[in-house]
Design a protein around this nucleic acid. Structure first.
Length: 678
RNA sequence: UGACCGAUGGUGUAACGGCAGCACAAGAGAUUUUGGUUCUCUUUGUCUAGGUUCGAAUCCUAGUCGGUCAACCA
């Protein structure tokens, strides 16, 4: 049990309220109900962590129930993968259940419903049924078979079950309300005929229940107290309850459905259909490609169960649409791996370094701390010699004052080894650097305790001894999509946003020999580079490492704008939408203004100016007394005022006062914009 | 032009009528044999307009915006 001081999500509030109203805690029961037609992804993890987390919190059983009511889409392979992923996340289900376990019970209940005149067999095409359904704004019309005699429906239903009819010819429909404003209540289909082999029931059945008919009743059979699903099922709730009404025994627990928002992640897609498309079009190598947001992909990438559970915990559960920033996920894995990963050295883009005053042929064994975050993690041996590889990035002939790495005439520390000084470079005819020549301070060996070893130098580099290094293939990954929400564009397919450079393979990286014994489940930090883990593609003698995530890199951030990241996005559509009032847009953009810089700021300012074209002076004047605290809004109003003045609007006293106040404001941008209006 | 659901910093999420908080992200500094970690500090928010109230993010009304709903999918 967690402490009560912790904040609760709305589901937990509901449970607490039920408990407070006398619902016995021992009757609490949850379930995670995947359809075995695809792999689990990070969005499912939210639901898994919610349901199983509730189980842990309230010491209640959680069933794993496969919603296997459609044999034409579902496969055993997916059942196995789903079980593996949930177990890997560290959750234990109370029972492994299948909706198909309840086919007989469901059939018996359906029979009862026909006898109660609550269901009938329809004999029309799906097009006819769809046409009669009406639209959300107009009621439906009854099927000509709606009042078929009970005995006839009973007979037909029996013959449907016996396989006397072809697929699609007959359906069993609930008799609810064709005029209901809720489309799901307009005589929903309960059973359809499907002639496909079911992964568990084989060929025993040729009629299969629909989701709505199977799901609530399965919850009821399992006595699930709180049936949690995603928001798009909100409209199904009425039907969920209606079906329960038909078969409910008041001495038993009655399940209740609640809906929460599905979890979206930035720079990826989360629907099984789209993920499948990536697999089928060979954009990725499979469901477990390390760039995929699937649980299996994340596992292969090097994510840990701890990190994914932490992510679900931090991201939380609520009812509004969301796109969680992928940086939160990255934070979670860094936090975990920082505590646990073994520190090693590897050079991905090598350049040769020669220590000219180090004896030729000499080798020293030095010691590298396994994990500075863990006191008792010990150390491992790393060989040192006269000729080393360092990263190309770590050397510049003339680095400048902010470059803490190796340059000519400057000193740096070789991690866990000696302090060296850049002396000269050897280049080829084209000017490419072939070798960097340095001298070392023999008294400066790490851990030797000498005065020289304690000297402070600006930078520390990782390195490997050329003679001792082993080689490996290293795969670096970037986000799969260039857009923050690739599937949120109505006019464009998510496929148009695929990042062509999401995979970078380094065929030959040099690693310290310690890594020859790397195992599949160990996690490593290649020092100064990031976290890495072995890929299952590794074979004897050919190591393949996946980069899980880089270290935070404040150096890179100051320097380069990495092309795939931080795509400046306009803060508002270029053309005013017309729907929302231009003034509202200006206020909205203004609020965020002080938080922006560079391209984003410029784009926001331009948007404000565009919207300002449609604003009247009277509207704008009302915003002159915006509180000084809301400086962003004031800047936006100032910008808009500028546009109006340009169009010939006279400077009223109110405008003059507003400009004057702006010129005296603490905020620089506001002052600048106010000055411009003089 | 319907019904239902939703709207709190850049992002995610708390605050059940009583000090708008936490995390990520961003920025500044300190420490550092990883430009990592750690530590300190900072910026940024209740969709709009009314109403109820001593007091509203919270309750009410209206509006705006977003989402969902018309598979023999789940």
């Amino acid at each position: 049990m967690k402490e009560s001081t912790e904040s609760l999500n709305f589901i937990e509030h509901i449970i607490e309220e039920d408990l407070a109203n006398g619902f016995p805690q021992e009757k609490l029961r949850f379930r995670f109900p995947p359809e075995p037609n695809g792999y689990l992804h990070i969005g499912h993890a939210a639901s898994i962590c919610l349901n199983f987390g509730l189980g842990e919190k309230y010491e209640a059983p959680v069933n794993l129930r496969f919603d296997d009511t459609n044999p034409s889409k579902e496969e055993q392979e997916y059942v196995d993968a789903i079980k593996r992923d949930i177990a890997w996340l560290g959750f234990k289900w109370a029972n492994e259940c299948y909706a198909s376990d309840y086919f007989q019970q469901l059939y018996d209940w359906a029979l009862q419903m026909i006898k109660d005149d609550k269901a009938y067999v329809d004999h029309q095409t799906s097009e006819q049924i769809a046409a009669q359904k009406g639209t959300p704004t107009s009621p439906g019309t009854a099927s000509p078979f709606r009042n078929r005699p009970i005995a006839e429906s009973l007979d037909l239903f029996n013959r449907m079950k016996n396989g006397e009819f072809p697929a699609g010819s007959y359906v069993l429909r609930a008799k609810v309300d064709m005029a209901s404003p809720n489309m799901h209540m307009r005589d929903p289909i309960m059973y359809r005929i499907i002639n496909a082999h079911h992964h568990r029931t084989g060929d025993k059945w040729c009629i299969y229940p629909m989701y709505d008919w199977a799901h609530g009743e399965s919850d009821y059979v399992e006595q699930v107290s709180h049936s949690l699903c995603t928001l798009e099922f909100r409209a199904h709730r009425e039907l969920y309850d209606w079906y329960l009404d038909q078969i409910y025994d008041p001495s038993l627990l009655r399940p209740k459905q609640r809906e929460f928002a599905r979890r979206n992640l930035s720079y990826t897609v989360m629907s099984k259909r789209k993920l499948l498309e990536l697999v089928q079009k060979n954009i990725v190598s499979g469901w477990d490609d390390p760039r995929m947001p699937t649980i299996s992909g994340l596992r292969r990438r090097g994510y840990t169960p701890t990190s994914i559970r932490k992510f679900s915990d931090l991201a939380g559960i609520a009812k509004r649409d969301n796109v969680t920033d992928v940086s939160l996920l990255e934070f979670c894995i860094r936090e975990d791996l920082n505590q646990t990963a073994t520190r090693v050295m590897a050079v991905l883009n090598p350049v040769k370094l020669v220590i000219t005053n180090y004896p030729e042929g000499q080798t020293e064994i030095l010691h590298l701390e396994n994990n500075p975050e863990e006191a008792n993690s010990g150390s491992h041996e790393v060989p040192f010699s006269r000729e080393l590889y360092i990263e190309q990035e770590d050397f510049k002939e003339d680095g400048g004052k902010n470059f803490f790495r190796l340059s000519l005439g400057n000193e740096v520390r070789l991690k866990s080894a000696y302090i060296i000084k850049g002396e000269s470079v050897v280049k080829d005819a084209a000017g490419n650097i072939l070798e960097i020549h340095v001298t070392y301070d023999p008294d400066s060996r790490s851990g030797s305790g000498t005065e020289a070893s304690e000297r402070k130098v600006k930078g520390t580099l990782h390195w490997v001894s050329i003679a001792h290094a082993i080689t490996a293939e290293v795969r670096e990954y970037d986000r799969l999509f260039l857009d923050e929400a690739p599937d949120a564009h109505e006019e464009k397919s998510f496929m148009e946003f695929i990042n062509p450079n999401s995979l970078n393979v380094i065929k030959k990286a040099y690693l310290e020999p310690f890594l020859a014994n790397a195992t599949m489940d160990s996690k490593y930090q290649f020092q100064r580079l990031g976290y890495f883990t072995l890929d299952p593609d590794s074979k004897n003698g050919h190591l393949v490492f996946n980069k899980t995530v880089g270290l935070k890199d404040t150096w890179a951030k100051q320097n380069v704008q990495t092309p795939t990241q931080a795509q400046p996005k306009p803060q508002a559509p270029a053309q005013p939408q017309g729907q929302k009032k231009a003034l509202n847009e200006i206020q909205q953009i203004g609020k965020k203004l002080t938080n922006l810089s560079g391209d984003k700021l410029e784009s926001a300012i331009n948007s404000i100016k565009v919207f300002a074209e449609e604003v009247s002076y009277e509207e704008l004047e009302a915003l002159f007394d915006t509180p000084a605290k809301k400086v962003g809004t004031r800047i936006a109003v100032m910008l808009a005022l500028g546009v109006l003045l340009n169009k010939g609007q006279a400077k009223t006293q109110a405008a003059l006062d507003f400009i004057l106040a702006g010129k005296a404001d603490e905020n620089e941008l506001l002052r600048v914009e106010a000055e411009k209006l003089n």
